[in-house]
Design a protein around this nucleic acid. Sequence first.
RNA 1: GGCGUCGUACCCAAGCGGUAAGGGAGCGGUCUGCAAAACCGUCAUGCACCAGUUCGAAUCUGGUCGACGCCUCCA
Length: 465
Amino acid sequence: MKFYNTLHRKKEDFQPLEKGKVTLYTCGPTVYDYAHIGNFRAYIFEDLLRRYLEFSEYDVLQVMNITDIDDKTIRRSIEEKMSLEDFTDKYTSSFFEDVETLKIIPAHHYPRATEFIPQMIETIKQLEDKGFTYTTEDGSVFFKISQFSNYGKLANLNPDQLKSGDRVEDDEYGKEEGRDFALWKGYKPQDGEVKWDSPWGEGRPGWHIECSVMSTYYLSNHFDIHCGGVDNIFPHHENEIAQSCAASGEAFVNYWLHNEHLLVEGQKMSKSMGNFYTLRDLLEKGCSPEALRYTLISTHYRSKLNFTFEKVKASQKCINKLRELKRRLKKIENDGEEKSLNSETEDMLSKFSDQLDDDLNISGALGELFIWVNYLFAELDDNKLDCCSANGALLALKKIDTVLGVVDCATLDVDENIQELIKERELARSDKNWAKADEVRGQLDRLGIILDDTPEGTVWKRKID
RNA sequence: GGCGUCGUACCCAAGCGGUAAGGGAGCGGUCUGCAAAACCGUCAUGCACCAGUUCGAAUCUGGUCGACGCCUCCA
């Protein structure tokens, strides 16, 4: 298995620190609003990574942080006249609901920054003792980058050139150099009720320290993989490396994986452009969670993904095709016990994983999958598939879906009213009352349900747009 | 200014020196009460452009054009 490691800007063979086990830290949400489709690209990429590692029989321990303390959560909670806790609880729950909707496998731990203040203070003290910090008049503590010689390695930036820059105007906490970053922020009136006691006075932790502290708390000082969006490479991850290595004196993360961003209809997603979508927005527009999942998963994680409704529609068709295959395979499964993977199926499985072994080359893997799907449909149409092979194929499809997570769907039931309509139409059809049958088809169509009359009876599925 | 990514058919997209995977859309057929699905056939002498290296290049080198990202808290 190979991954593109941002640290060395090349693909590298993946060797976990402990054989058969993977320690994985994935940057999570800042809970100040509903997560948008771009956020989910990152979480879906991380989910693909998690699922594929487990598919490859690694025992994965995954941690995802919940950032519930930063400028945005404080500002918005004050605007909403809510306590920080109530405010962030609301968006944390909505995040978990969305995770479930998208069938993202939950991380083993979701630490919240506010639950780790003592540990963060402890780490800052360690850094202070080792001479990596300085304190300013307002009770803020900064990390002194000039003390850390490896600074800039991940982002491939020259630290000396970070000294000057038009965008460095932020001297609000009185730091010595623009490039230094806050470990602890002294209390300011705009923080409202949000403050904790510390050896440097009241205040709150900086952003970067939370990930350093929470990742190493669960995964130890040195762990395998750390993921996030490309925008996190600098400064967030660069700063994490500096803090963590300076504090522990050990290596921090072996593999840094970053996902590219998402565009919507070719444009950067923004509220002013009117192309800013949360998961809820898209579900309301009729996109199914599986189609969104497929859309987000099916472009390689290091390429920009142009999110379009055309792509969601194409994704839904691919999923329908896989579900149709499953239905037809099940039909000849009959007595069910005997299974064998025929050579085509074995071939597909091995090519599928070969592709994903190459830095999660999902397009290549899906290509292999559909070659096999087409082969199976042709066999099924010719009645050439024995039940042994069909059972084997079903098994393979199930295995593939542990990675994709789009075929099986718990919410594929419709309300009773719709079931009644389908029965009504079945009756009309057996009476050859075609006018009535077509009327019902039209009725269901308006409800977003498509009917397929198959030799085994009528099946239905969700309309694509 | 510094660092970096990308340009393959109508759309998406693999490919990493050996003669263009796969998906969607389209078109023509088979099947069907109608439809859908599925199946069969069709769909790039060419991979932004120009040179070069090579027996051989979408793949390597140089250049040109174009799109984009990061350079202090945005996944």
